[in-house]
Computed example of a mutant assay.
Amino acid sequence: MMKKIIMIIGAIMICFGVLFQYQGRGVVGPESSFMYYNKDWIYYGIAIILSGVAVCGAGVFLYVRARLRARL
């Protein structure tokens, strides 16, 4: 169960990273936002996406390892 929660958290991080990255580019969000057209948030969003991929990958790794151990 914990493995799936880790994967869900990673997926949520990826979604937020994509949102932040698009806000930094000025594609999404209100123009009054401090994140709108702010180059820093493009990089923060990419960093959050990569972190989410790492967290999701760790969850997948734990899930696969548990499945392989169950087969033995």
Rank of each mutant, 00 (worst) to 15 (best):
G17C: 01
I12Q: 02
G17I: 00
R69H: 11
Q21S: 12
V64L: 07
K4F: 07
G29C: 03
G17R: 00
R25V: 06
L62W: 07
I46N: 08
Y44D: 05
F61Y: 13
A11V: 00
F34H: 15
M2P: 05
V27E: 12
G45S: 07
G17A: 03
V53F: 09
R67A: 14
Y43Q: 06
D40L: 12
S32W: 06
F16M: 13
Q23K: 11
M7C: 06
D40I: 10
M7W: 03
Q21N: 10
I46S: 07
I6Q: 03
R25G: 07
F16P: 01
V55C: 04
K39R: 15
K3A: 10
I42N: 11
V18T: 12
R71I: 11
P30G: 14
R71M: 13
G10V: 00
R71W: 12
M7L: 06
K39N: 14
V27R: 05
W41Q: 03
N38A: 14
K3S: 11
I9A: 02
M35P: 13
A66P: 00
Y37N: 15
L19R: 07
G10A: 01
L68N: 12
V28N: 02
I8T: 03
V53I: 14
M1N: 05
I42E: 11
R65A: 02
D40F: 09
I49K: 03
I12W: 00
S33P: 15
F20N: 07
M13T: 00
R69C: 08
M7S: 04
V53E: 08
A11Q: 00
G10I: 00
V53A: 12
Y37K: 15
F20W: 14
G10E: 02
M7A: 04
G52A: 06
C56T: 09
C15A: 13
Y36V: 14
Y44P: 01
